[in-house]
Nucleic acid binder design. Structure first.
Length: 117
DNA sequence: ATACTGACTAATC
DNA sequence: TGATTAGCCAGTA
């Protein structure tokens, strides 16, 4: 169950103006095979102030799935942060992808520990 | 316990 | 390079 709490923590660490992939988040939660569960988490499990709009699939496409009130919502929020989204609902991961640093990893580890998850 | 589902991915063709 | 297939695994019924 703590997996979902980790997902929430990781999402909150995604920098403004950047995006991360489901697989990447799963990896950071130390569950490399749980990419789908990350999506599930964002969809059903997690509520609250999670910047889920910064999470896309490994191609940089906004999977969408009516995740937000109205579609286009995710795209709108990203562009608000300066992330360009093309008409195919895709962002350029080479430009906006969150490149995890060692600092990020350490920060997350400390965060998990402090929360006991 | 079994079967089906899905905001996913990596491998193959 | 682009499309298909084939694993994936927690949740739900």
């Amino acid at each position: 169950m703590d997996f979902y709490q980790r997902v929430a923590s990781v999402c909150r660490q995604i920098p403004y103006g950047k995006v991360a992939t489901y697989g990447q988040i799963a990896l950071l939660c130390q569950k490399p095979r749980n990419a789908r569960q990350v999506g599930y988490a964002l969809n059903k499990k997690i509520t609250g102030d999670i910047p889920a709009h910064r999470v896309v699939n490994h191609q940089g496409i906004l999977s969408g799935a009516a995740a937000f009130k109205n579609e286009q919502e995710q795209k709108r929020r990203l562009e608000e942060e300066g992330v360009k989204v093309d008409q195919g609902q895709q962002v350029d991961l080479r430009v906006y992808g969150w490149k995890n640093t060692l600092d990020d990893a350490l920060l997350l580890e400390a965060l998990f520990k402090s929360k006991g998850i």
